[in-house]
Structure formats: C-alpha cells, structure tokens
Amino acid sequence: MTGRERSAEWLKAGGLRPTRQRLALAELLIGDGMNRHVTAESLFALSADAGEKVSLATVYNTLRAFCEAGLMNEVVVDGSKSYFDTRTDDHPHFYWEDSHTLTDAPAEELEIAALPQVPEGMTVSRVDVVIRLRRAEQGAA
C-alpha cells in the first residue's frame, strides 16, 4: 500500500473528506505506517520541506479535525504546548525538556492504582500521563 493510499484510508476511517491538503498532511503523518508526535509548527515545516503549499492556520485546523475524527490525540504539555499523536490507544509519554520532544513511554511499566472519584454527572474520558525528563546533574545520586 502506498503512503497516499494509506492516507486516504485513514481519512475515510475518520469520516473525513480527502481534500488535497488533508491528504498531503495525512501522508506526512502516517504515510510510512509509523506513529508520530508532531506540533503544528513541526508539521508545517515538514509540509514546506515536501513542497506542499499549506498555511500554518490550515495545519492547525486540520490537526484539530483529525483529533475530532478520532484519528489523533492531542497531548498538552505545560498547558501551552500541544503535541499531536497518531497513536490513539491509551499510553504514557516522555517529554524531553532539553529537546522539547514527546515520545512514547513503555505502557507495560506504568501502574495506576486508583483515580480520584469524579464529580457527580461526570465520567473519565481519558487519562494523560506525561513524564517530564531532564538530564541528571553530574555527581547527583
């Protein structure tokens, strides 16, 4: 299956019309079958490098549409920086403070024993676990 075909199927699975811009961005995200963590800015740069004429506003809008269609998840770090993850199952993340990147953390090593009781009339929709990493200081134990 080509990257373009994989992208068209992905959009179809989310019920999204395969416009030229959606197809181009989808191919950059999942065309090779690998999962990715991107910011709108990094996807915009990738699209420019690939010769695609897509505005940053279009990238933001398309990423939001992909999330609303259930094709991606948004992971917010520090309440201000959004990363978009093509892997949609529940899994934790490492946030690398020195490089400002987000990667998957091994889910099988995470144990959550309990969650707080949710307010009446509410249900848990998702639990995001972001483990922040920074280089250990030399000589620190």
Rank of each mutant, 00 (worst) to 15 (best):
E5R: 11
E5H: 08
R6K: 15
R6C: 06
E9I: 03
E9C: 02
E9R: 15
W10V: 06
L11D: 08
L11V: 04
K12V: 00
G14H: 07
G14S: 06
P18Y: 06
T19N: 05
T19V: 06
T19A: 10
Q21M: 09
Q21Y: 01
Q21F: 00
Q21D: 13
R22T: 08
R22D: 02
R22P: 00
R22E: 04
L23E: 12
L23I: 04
L25M: 15
A26I: 05
A26Y: 01
E27V: 05
E27T: 15
E27W: 02
L28K: 07
L29A: 08
I30V: 15
D32H: 09
D32M: 08
D32L: 05
R36L: 03
V38E: 10
T39P: 03
E41S: 14
E41N: 14
S42C: 03
S42G: 04
L43I: 08
F44N: 10
F44I: 08
F44H: 14
F44D: 12
A45V: 14
S47I: 04
D49L: 11
D49Y: 10
A50I: 09
A50R: 14
E52H: 15
K53E: 14
K53C: 01
S55A: 10
T58R: 11
V59K: 05
N61T: 13
N61A: 12
N61P: 00
R64S: 12
R64A: 13
F66L: 11
C67W: 02
C67G: 01
E68Y: 01
A69N: 08
L71Y: 00
N73Q: 14
E74I: 08
V76D: 00
K81R: 15
K81V: 12
S82R: 14
Y83T: 03
Y83Q: 09
Y83V: 09
F84Y: 15
D85Y: 00
D85A: 12
R87M: 09
T88C: 13
T88Q: 08
D89V: 07
D90Q: 14
P92E: 11
P92T: 12
P92K: 10
H93D: 03
H93Y: 15
H93N: 07
H93P: 02
F94P: 01
F94Y: 15
Y95W: 15
E97C: 11
H100F: 06
T101L: 09
T101C: 01
T101P: 00
L102R: 09
L102W: 03
A105N: 07
P106Y: 10
A107D: 06
A107F: 07
E108I: 05
E108M: 09
L110I: 07
E111V: 13
I112T: 03
A113W: 03
A114K: 15
A114E: 14
A114S: 11
A114F: 03
P116A: 11
Q117F: 05
Q117E: 15
Q117N: 04
G121H: 08
G121Q: 10
T123L: 13
R126N: 11
V127M: 12
V129W: 10
V129S: 06
V130A: 05
I131G: 00
R132K: 14
R132Q: 11
R135P: 01
R135S: 10
E137I: 12
E137S: 09
E137M: 11
Q138G: 07
Q138T: 07
G139P: 02
G139A: 03
A140Y: 14
A141H: 10
